[in-house]
């Protein structure tokens, strides 16, 4: 696990810590946010403590992490334990969902962890900020274009451990991309060419579902950068729409009447 140096200071169950115990109201607020997620009751039904989740968990082999423990903390409403797990442990999960496919109670520890991660973000946990830092390039790309990954992100600099050659044929990336026989993939900055209109639609989704707000909580700088890009691209789109004039071409699929 990468270092989250905050752990010692924030470890509320640590009798040696000089820090005052965390405010109960805050712990309850955090737990309520977890519990009130629409998925919570569906993903947590009880626990037989059988350990099949941990048995099959890839992360449990390498980290001090056990999905059974997470489920137990939630099920027993151990608020301090939940808070503690959110400092570090919840980020160990590899999200393979094997636990969910195995649990005799049909719990989904992997989904519960996702709820906890969302809540860690909402509350601006330092753990979430630390974890998300290396993700910022990915998020910038995804949120501003609608495409998670781009060919020009995969460089020997960023992925030195993937070997000296990203491609075994030595040629400029641009040429290699142009040699992919799918026209949508002859791109550099996105994995496939995403239409501007498509990105603009996605911006509406980000805004209306609170994703930008999440981002603002966790990384204000990134939020600013992304907001600027979104504004710019929206203007581009408006310009294009105006240049078309004719509604027929603006959108092959005319907007539906709202219900």
């Amino acid at each position: 696990m990468h270092a989250t140096s905050t752990r010692k200071q924030q470890y509320i169950g640590d009798p040696l810590s000089q820090q005052p115990a965390l405010d109960r109201a805050r712990l309850e607020e955090i737990f309520n946010d977890i519990q009130s997620d629409a998925r919570y009751d569906h993903e947590l039904n009880g626990c037989l403590n059988c350990g099949i989740c941990t048995a099959t968990c890839p992360a449990a082999h390498y980290y001090d992490f056990s999905p059974r423990e997470i489920v137990q903390l939630l099920w027993t409403e151990n608020l301090e334990g939940i808070y503690d797990a959110m400092q570090e442990k919840i980020w160990a999960c590899a999200q393979c969902y094997t636990c969910a496919a195995r649990c005799p109670f049909r719990n989904s520890p992997g989904s519960l962890i996702m709820i906890m991660r969302e809540v860690a973000i909402k509350h601006g946990f330092q753990s979430a900020k630390d974890v998300l830092r290396p993700f910022s390039r990915v998020m910038l790309k995804l949120i501003s274009t609608g495409n998670q990954l781009s060919p020009d992100m995969i460089t020997a600099d960023h992925f030195a451990d993937w070997g000296p050659n990203i491609s075994k044929v030595d040629a400029p990336l641009k040429l290699l991309r142009a040699a992919i026989p799918m026209p949508t993939l002859n791109t550099m900055k996105t994995a496939w060419e995403v239409n501007l209109k498509t990105s603009i639609e996605l911006y509406t989704i980000w805004e209306m579902t609170g994703v930008l707000k999440q981002l603002e909580t966790i990384d204000e700088n990134l939020f600013d950068v992304i907001s600027d890009i979104m504004d710019e691209r929206r203007e581009d789109y408006e310009d294009w729409c105006e240049s078309q004039g004719d509604n027929e071409t603006r959108r092959a699929a005319p907007p539906e009447e709202t219900a």
Binding site: N49, G51, T54, C57
Partner: peptide
């Protein structure tokens, strides 16, 4: 056989 010994808390 893959399991967790839940009492000693180790994947086995």
């Amino acid at each position: 056989v893959k399991g967790e010994d839940t009492l000693v808390k180790r994947p086995i």
